[in-house]
Simulated assay, not measured.
Amino acid sequence: MLLPAKAEVARHLERYRAWERLLLAAPADHVVRGNFENTGYTLCVLMGKRCAREAADAAEHYLRAASSMARARGSQGRGPSRTAGTCP
């Protein structure tokens, strides 16, 4: 399964959340609503979900999982170093 680039997911999720905040501040603004719906649609396509809220949740989960995997990989290489010719 192909997964989207983390940077793209983060960028689109940030845009979605920004338009969501603007929509909550001005619910009658048709331009804001249109931009919010467009960013939601893009996030749906990116995450393979039918609902923008589900897509945003999936994006957050994907980014959390990706960052925790990166931290785990980074901590694996920080143990005591061994030099050639020494026994464990």
Score class of each variant (00 low, 15 high):
residue 80 P to T: 12
residue 13 L to K: 08
residue 29 D to Q: 02
residue 43 L to A: 08
residue 68 S to H: 07
residue 37 E to C: 04
residue 62 Y to A: 06
residue 85 G to C: 05
residue 63 L to K: 11
residue 55 A to R: 02
residue 48 G to L: 06
residue 17 R to D: 15
residue 12 H to L: 15
residue 52 A to I: 01
residue 30 H to A: 15
residue 63 L to I: 14
residue 66 A to H: 15
residue 67 S to M: 06
residue 33 R to S: 13
residue 83 T to N: 07
residue 14 E to C: 10
residue 68 S to F: 02
residue 8 E to C: 01
residue 59 A to S: 11
residue 29 D to K: 04
residue 23 L to G: 09
residue 70 A to W: 01
residue 40 G to E: 01
residue 10 A to C: 05
residue 81 S to Q: 12
residue 40 G to F: 02
residue 62 Y to P: 00
residue 1 M to H: 12
residue 33 R to T: 14
residue 21 R to A: 13
residue 60 E to D: 08
residue 47 M to R: 01
residue 52 A to S: 11
residue 29 D to T: 03
residue 55 A to F: 02
residue 78 R to Q: 14
residue 20 E to I: 00
residue 24 L to F: 13
residue 43 L to M: 09
residue 18 A to H: 10
residue 78 R to Y: 06
residue 86 T to H: 03
residue 31 V to L: 13
residue 11 R to L: 11
residue 84 A to V: 15
residue 79 G to Q: 04
residue 29 D to S: 12
residue 45 V to F: 12
residue 24 L to S: 11
residue 27 P to L: 09
residue 81 S to Y: 02
residue 23 L to D: 02
residue 74 G to R: 13
residue 27 P to S: 07
residue 83 T to L: 12
residue 85 G to A: 15
residue 85 G to F: 08
residue 8 E to A: 13
residue 76 Q to I: 03
residue 71 R to L: 06
residue 88 P to N: 13
residue 68 S to W: 05
residue 81 S to D: 03
residue 12 H to K: 13
residue 22 L to D: 06
residue 59 A to R: 05
residue 7 A to G: 06
residue 59 A to N: 02
residue 50 R to V: 07
residue 62 Y to G: 12
residue 50 R to P: 09
residue 85 G to P: 03
residue 67 S to F: 00
residue 25 A to N: 10
residue 11 R to H: 11
residue 72 A to P: 00
residue 83 T to D: 09
residue 37 E to D: 14
residue 41 Y to L: 13
residue 15 R to Y: 13
residue 83 T to V: 12
residue 87 C to M: 05
residue 76 Q to A: 11
residue 23 L to N: 12
residue 67 S to C: 05
residue 88 P to L: 14
residue 48 G to Q: 06
residue 65 A to T: 08
residue 39 T to R: 01
residue 38 N to M: 02
residue 34 G to C: 07
residue 19 W to H: 12
residue 43 L to R: 04
residue 69 M to G: 01
residue 68 S to Y: 06
residue 86 T to C: 11
residue 24 L to M: 09
residue 55 A to K: 03
residue 2 L to I: 01
residue 5 A to T: 04
residue 62 Y to T: 08
residue 10 A to K: 09
residue 16 Y to T: 03
residue 9 V to G: 01
residue 61 H to G: 06
residue 52 A to T: 05
residue 14 E to M: 10
residue 39 T to N: 09
residue 86 T to W: 12
residue 74 G to P: 00
residue 76 Q to L: 15
residue 38 N to F: 08
residue 58 A to I: 02
residue 35 N to I: 02
residue 56 A to M: 06
